[in-house]
Structures are given as C-alpha cells and as structure tokens.
Design a protein around this nucleic acid. Structure first.
Lengths: 187, 187
DNA sequence: CTCATATAGTTAGGAACCTAACTATATTTC
DNA sequence: GAAATATAGTTAGGTTCCTAACTATATGAG
C-alpha cells in the first residue's frame, strides 16, 4: 500500500509551534507557546546529539563517557584521581569506576595505588591511550567543526550566549515548587 | 560533612574556550576552537537537560519518554498505533513496547487489538491518563516557560533558528567519512 | 590511644533506550 | 491457493548512567 509518506523524514519529527500552542490552549494556560517550543526543541536536540555522539565515538572503540575521561586525563598531565574525574565529567564516582574498568581492560589507562593515601587509586593514561587520542583527533575535531559549520563565527558567539542562559534556566525543572518564578526575566 | 550532593553538580565544569584551544593545539590541527566549544557546550546542555527532565517528570510518577507518549496520544485523539508513536517520539518500536507496558500497568493507557489488521494493537489513552495530563499541565508548562525565562522573545526566535541549524549539523558526526565537509558554510 | 565519623572507591541493582532476533499476521507472487 | 516475503509488535540481551549500600583507609574527639 505505497504507504510512503512524502515527508517521511528518516527520524526527525521536530516539535512544531502549532503543536505547542494546541497543548497549551487545551487547558487554557497562560504560557508562551514559543517558550515551550524552545524547551521541546532543545530537549530533542540534546537527545539526538547524545545518540549521534555515541555512534561517532564507537568508530574508535570508545563511548562518549570513555572518550571524555581520556581527554580529561590528557588535560591533566595524564594522571588523576577517580573522584576528580567524576567531578570534571559531571558523573558519579560509581560511573567513573565503570568507565575505568573498561578503559583498563582495553589498555588505555591503568590504575595505581597512592603511596600517601591508601584509599586513593589514581588513574594513569597509558602510552596506548595517548596514541588513541592522537590518532582520532583529526577526524574527531573535523567532525565537531563540521557540526556547527552552518553557523557563522558571529552566530556561534550569539548561540553560546543564549545557550548559556538557557542552560542556567534548566534548574527551573528541578527547583522545589515555589522557586520557579525566579527564572523569569524582567522585561 | 553533611555531604550535600544535591547541589554538587551545580559546581559546573562547563567546558571552556581555553580547554578547547589547548586540545586543538596539542595536535596542531586547523580547527576553530570556538566551533569545538559550541559542540561541547551543547552536548553538556543536552545531557544536563535530559537528566533534569527525568527528575521533573518523576514528580508526576512518569519518565520523559512516558510523558511524551501520553502527550502524543492526546495530540492524536487519544488513540494511536505503537508504530506511529515510535515514529512521532523518535524511538524504536521496542522502546515503545516498554513504555506502554508500564503505562498500561499504571492504568494510564490500554491496548486494543485491531479488527481490521490482526497484527496491530492500538494504544488508547484512558480517562485516568487524560486526568494525569490535565493535572500536571499547569506546573509542567510553567516550569518549561521558566526554563527559557532568561531569554527575551526576540532572543528565543534567534535561538530557535541557530539551534535548528546546529541540529541539522549533528549528522556530521554520523555521516560516512567522506561526507563531513558538506556541512561547512560558504562564507 | 581508641572509638566514632568522614572519605575513596567499588559493588549491586535499577531505569531508559538500543539492536537483533522472534512470533503472528498480512500481502505478494507464481 | 500455497509458498515466499513483508510488516506489527514483542522479547532478549546490551550499554550508559544512576542511587544506595558496602569495604577499606584516614582523621578527629574524648
């Protein structure tokens, strides 16, 4: 039954302004539909980017988290404590343990127990780990650059500014109930 | 002491331009550091938003995916096929099966076998499901609006435009090797 | 000095989403 | 009309990251 939707976009069902408007009007709420649309689009972009990122790094036998761990190690003279890594990457220590397990199994990092504090086990970037980063750098950064290639230099600045403010606003989703209004901008 | 992890992630290690620059210079690559920064920040924002979103919806006993499924049902007269839901939500049919399982267990949707096609089992929003959406709407949309409250109306338009183009560019991460350059903007 | 407490890392188990394979039904082809 | 093929939904098992509880070591109070 030739069911081929002409607009059968492979996977993007981007939320539309109409959609947001309908959802709001259904309950007679006093909310700006465009604001809701921004939230919906950003959420969609984030999940899409997260997925694409995993595909990207899997080309090199890594995941997003494991790459970020290696890169952070490289930024810190090749040695860090798991707790430092957790803070830098914005994940829990438990997650870091798992990332290290696999990276160590693959020979990209190694664990070393501290002489001064028996609880600490610092993580060291191996020669093989450094080589992995070196080998993937050209393609990795070229792809990142291509990703924002549709924006001019000035537009990138603007985007960074706006994205930064929206990122601040994310806490409105997690704040305790009374606090939500504080995010509204005085106009 | 007191180990207040609650706000510990507020200790944002947002990627900096300096960091991007160093990473690029380490390998003498001809890449725009600002572009890399945009990519890194967007990735961070996406993951942060995803996490905040789960916290937000868990207040109502839902997950992000289950809410989106209910909302999509509501947008479609309260009845849809799992395969349609999968396409609208941008997830696989397998994921939709899992979402429905829980929503059905909680009485928010029900499954109904099709009379015309024995393979199809359409999903119906129950009265309880509709009530859930109605009850959460005011707080839900207020929080979404607050999230972008630091942007003026004009800024939101600009942000939507720029975000749209970056979102298009995401495919640069997943395209086959030769195709990356196509994303570069003619300047 | 000893005991209570804090900290570093790990383990155990859960949630969300994925891919691949499977079951059941429909459609096409000869 | 029967066999081959396609499609809808489900199941099985994997990945990433989470929270909570646990082990081992360090520190501080009496």
């Amino acid at each position: 039954m030739a069911n081929k939707n002409i607009i059968s976009n492979a996977n993007d069902a981007a939320p539309s302004l109409i959609q947001s408007k309908r959802q709001i009007e259904r309950y007679n709420l006093d909310v700006d539909a465009q604001a809701v649309l921004v939230a919906a689009r950003l959420m969609e972009a984030g999940s899409k980017l997260g997925h694409a990122s995993e595909i990207h790094f899997s080309r090199f036998g890594l995941s997003t988290g494991r790459y970020r761990l290696l890169a952070d190690l490289e930024d810190n003279e090749g040695e860090e404590l798991p707790s430092q890594l957790a803070e830098h990457l914005g994940v829990t220590r438990a997650t870091v343990t798992g990332l290290i397990d696999i990276l160590e199994r693959d020979g990209l990092v190694s664990r070393r127990t501290s002489a001064t504090d028996g609880r600490q086990r610092s993580v060291v970037l191996t020669e093989q780990g450094a080589r992995k980063l070196r080998d993937m750098a050209p393609e990795h950064f070229a792809r990142l650059e291509a990703m924002v290639g549709l924006l001019s230099v000035e537009e990138r600045s603007v985007f960074l500014d706006l994205l930064g403010r929206v990122t601040q606003g994310i806490s409105a989703l997690t704040d305790e109930p009374g606090k939500v209004k504080e995010h509204i901008r005085k106009e």
